[in-house]
Design a binder for these strands. Structure first.
Lengths: 206, 206
DNA sequence: CAAACCTCGCAGTGATCATTGCGTTAGCGG
DNA sequence: CCGCTAACGCAATGATCACTGCGAGGTTTG
């Protein structure tokens, strides 16, 4: 996968002030999401960002689009696809990084709010490029001439538990548990594989 | 889906009118959730239900609590824990029923909205009694004197993919795919188990 | 059957929200 | 350095929302 750091140049004038306003509004949304008691409405966001509400209305139009925008820029180019040389290593690194990312209460609140108000489009924004990143890892393994699980299977075994546990439960996402997910996927695919290196330690959550 | 007239004994007066108002408000929430364009605010819900907004404000207080209430009564006692005699049969039946349930766009919209506005409590309401139902299935297998996967492992292998695919993607939830989830869980636990009966047919989604 | 209590409907009120038109300011190119 | 255009701030307006006493209707209990 080539560098995903392509900047968002969809704006016709990405100059200093526009970018500053954009960043301030994004940060205000993230801040208000953590408060859990704030209303997350456009005037509140604007006031928190030190911007006029009119600007937010004109640039984004609604809370749904604003959340989708924040989620998109939050989940794009955030996790670098690792290249450790082995499929297990790549997946362990990837799952661990994703677990660490989803541990952040700010990120979690953003995901929940975006799903709730953004509907189908918001859900897609929350998925981000996870599917492509996983596919890149799997294709790299295939390029090594080895057997690889399907993308669907990998999604069910890695992505789904991470997202489910983060969004629906309040259990901590530990790196040891993430490693176990990889182990179960690989042992299922290869019949009986090598044991995991070292699991069940180094908590990521508080 | 059985009738939604499950008597809620939590009310101090489950008499005719209160129950009727409650059902009307719940149905209005479900209806408005499918519209995707409606605002889902308390006056709108009340108007849709043919009830005065005051009643909704007094009984529920906020949209979050109302959604949590609807989700709770929607996801309680809805899926009957099957008893087919084998762990595989129980899990296949359970996963298939859950997949069929999550296919409903109304249910899906309810889950998304409840997560978004209800926060941690809303997420718990969406999980419902799924964890206990799964634990019951596993304990029954243990009572048969056989090895059983842990609840955590079963949640990761069955519940998480179902919820993830339903909430975050728009791929269809087929019963064949649900059967495959069970097969992967059991073959992983037992080293090399019997092959699944017949997978990958009988679509549940459109 | 009647009294007591709970629930709902009604009208009114303050607050917040969403939207619009206009003037000003800041970035960008000649 | 100067004009041009886009983006922002400001003020005003109509609409909707959240909330509160008060009275009427229905439900339960003795």
């Amino acid at each position: 996968m080539p560098a995903t750091t392509s900047p968002q140049r969809t704006e016709s004038r990405p100059g200093g002030r526009s970018a500053r306003v954009r960043a301030a509004v994004h940060q205000a949304v993230k801040d208000l999401l953590t408060d859990e008691a704030s209303e997350l409405t456009i005037p509140v966001v604007a006031s928190r960002a030190g911007v006029h509400a009119t600007t937010v209305y004109r640039r984004w139009g609604s809370i749904a689009e604003l959340l989708a925008d924040v989620a998109t820029s939050r989940f794009s180019g955030d996790i670098v696809v690792p290249d450790t040389g082995t499929l297990r290593g790549d997946l362990e690194r990837y799952a661990s990084d994703l677990a660490k990312d989803l541990c952040d209460p700010d990120t979690l609140a953003l995901v929940r709010a975006t799903i709730g108000t953004g509907g189908e489009q918001g859900a897609a924004a929350c998925r981000g490029e996870r599917q492509q990143q996983l596919e890149a890892i799997l294709e790299r393994e295939q390029a090594r001439g080895r057997e690889r699980p399907t993308l669907e299977r990998t999604t069910d075994a890695i992505l789904a538990p991470l997202y489910y546990r983060a969004v629906f439960t309040n259990e901590p996402l530990t790196s040891g548990w993430a490693y176990d997910l990889v182990s179960h996927l690989l042992s299922d695919e290869n019949g009986a594989d090598t044991a995991p290196d070292s699991a069940s330690d180094s908590l990521l959550a508080d």
